[in-house]
Amino acid sequence: MSAPTASRRLILLVDDDALLLDYLSTVLRHAGYETIMAASAPEALQRVAEPDTDIALALLDINMPGMSGLDLARRLKDHTEVPFMFLSSVDDAETARQAASHGAVGFVVKPVDATRLLPAFESALARADEIRKLRHTEANLNAALAAGRETSLAVGLLMTRFQTDRNTAFEVLRDHARSSRRKINELAEQLVEAEELLNGLHGAFVSRLRR
């Protein structure tokens, strides 16, 4: 039975071993994912470039003839938003360090079996989703801050008042604007005005107490 959490997401498998590719594809399809396969790094890049191809995660063999999995990972990182994890026949600290330095979200060691593959794969996919969400939030935040001084000031006020980070402050402000069906700049302007009013009243109270 297909795993309901998989949602038929598309996975790119890259390895020069045809038998291993078939095995990986079978395991992931049984778990509820869709797969596409590539026997080399250049073929993988062609797959990624195909229109309307929304790849949730790529599983890359590190050691392939010609362009290695590390080289392919560098291309994916520099020119796409496709997250990737590595498949390696070597299990040592240096290989793991290389994987991490290239931005991999996971690492699996050969020989592969389903009991080890699926937990590592699902963990990597969850990490990839977290990174994708952060990128999306950061892009929205940068666009909003560029659009208005009030939004930037309001985010700063929320960060100070609630001791939170920049992204969280922006998300709260954005979500409240959506729930109240208002533009984020309008809500930010009201928040800034309220803060200025409170500051003015605070000054008035301090002056009165000093008399």
Rank of each mutant, 00 (worst) to 15 (best):
L158C: 03
E186S: 14
A44H: 05
G69W: 03
R74C: 06
F84H: 01
D54S: 10
E50H: 06
V206N: 02
P51H: 02
D22A: 14
L197S: 11
F86Q: 08
R127L: 15
E171R: 08
R8F: 06
G200I: 13
R149S: 07
K133S: 11
S179V: 10
R127P: 02
P4I: 11
A124H: 07
V108M: 10
A144H: 00
R29A: 06
R116Q: 15
E122R: 15
G200H: 14
N140F: 04
A6V: 01
S207M: 09
L209T: 05
L59N: 05
R181S: 12
V109G: 02
N142I: 10
I131P: 00
T137Q: 13
V105G: 09
Q163P: 00
A93L: 12
L145V: 14
L201S: 03
R132N: 02
L141N: 11
L158Y: 09
A99M: 08
A100M: 12
R182H: 03
Q46R: 15
G103P: 10
D61T: 05
V108H: 07
A124E: 04
E189H: 11
P4L: 13
A120P: 03
E195W: 15
F86I: 05
A144Y: 00
A44E: 08
P51C: 03
V14C: 11
L60Q: 07
H30N: 14
T160P: 00
A188K: 04
R182A: 12
S180E: 11
Y33S: 00
L45K: 07
R181F: 02
A93E: 15
P83C: 07
L153I: 03
T168H: 12
L57E: 05
Q163E: 14
T137K: 11
F121N: 12
G103Y: 05
N185Y: 00
T137N: 10
F121I: 10
S123F: 13
R74M: 05
I62F: 11
H102K: 12
S89L: 07
E50P: 01
A114I: 08
R97F: 11
A144I: 00
H136P: 00
L191K: 02
R8A: 12
I131D: 03
D92K: 09
G203P: 00
D16C: 01
K183P: 05
V206E: 11
L201R: 05
M85Y: 06
L45E: 12
T5D: 13
A124K: 09
T80H: 05
G156K: 03
L118F: 10
D22T: 12
A154N: 02
V172C: 01
P4R: 08
H176Q: 14
I11R: 06
V48H: 10
L191R: 04
S101M: 14
A49P: 03
S89F: 06
L191C: 07
D52P: 01
